[in-house]
Amino acid sequence: MSFLQDNMVYILVATISMSIPLILASLGGIFSARSGIMALGLESMMMTGAFTAVVGTYFSGNAYVGLLAGMGGGALISYLYGILCIRYKVNQVIAGVGLNLLALSATTLLTELIWGNRGSSPQVASIQLNLSFLSKVPVIGKILEGQSILLLITGVFVCVAWFVLFKTVYGLRLRIVGENPKAASTMGLKVKAIKYQGVIICGMLAGLGGAYLSIDHIDLFQRNMTAGRGYIAVVIMILGRYHPFYVVVAALIFGFSDAIQIYLQGQGIPSQLMQTIPYVVTLFVLAFGVKHIRPPAGIGMHEDDH
């Protein structure tokens, strides 16, 4: 009994901690998609965030500076994504894929240039604050006590995102821009500015998700450390119907598949095969789960289209 219980707790703890970066990234994706730009560049924003977070921590010695650097890095590359998609009207898929490849190669290159090692950075300081003060809470205390403070921050962001999107004038405008940029523009809204804002919010959140992976999880940067999570986050965003609360639920499914994978690796099953689980789950969701979900109608459109 207690064996199972221990494992359950282990899996749940891992589920939550694997979900945090996915929630953050897909939450960011919502802001981008709702403003009319499909966030296929999420991978690049996470990757850059993971990298700049380590750089920030390495040079400042402070993991919180690193977190901010991660958000900044994500914002920077998302700004680039915005310039491509908004100003130069590049096909969003191509722009996203191009930036994802650029982020992968540029972070690898810079890792080498800064630390002289092709594969990874040295270990850096990590976020020390965790939720141990919650250990006394019955039932879930055990699951929460080891979690990073970022869990709390993520929760707050989810609620704020919901509030902003659905209760404020700003959110209404952002959603109208994403549904029908031309209509928004004829009513005098600053469509381009709103899109840039959506994309940059996306970059900050995804960058924070990346920073969690690098400086909260394993305390260093590794080549290609996001390993497709940015793409998975896109699927989570769609499965979560572009809604902050549903996205959390969708992300937990993927976090769980990741946790199971890590757990089973310790049980003697070949690790390579176990590692495919999250990807296989994503494929299945892609095939069976998201067919009838309607994306914002203005994705890929510009206010001055004819």
């Binding site: 898929v93 497709g228 793409y231 699927v235 095969l273 495919t276 990807y279 095939a287 069976f288």
Partner: peptide
């Protein structure tokens, strides 16, 4: 997948890359 379920091929192919590489390595 694209024809039957309208799946986004960008994401599907990325997932299949990871799976292919892992399975081949296995």
């Amino acid at each position: 997948m694209k024809v039957r379920f309208g799946s986004n091929e960008v994401i599907a192919t990325i997932m299949l890359n990871s799976i292919a590489i892992l399975v081949a390595n296995y």
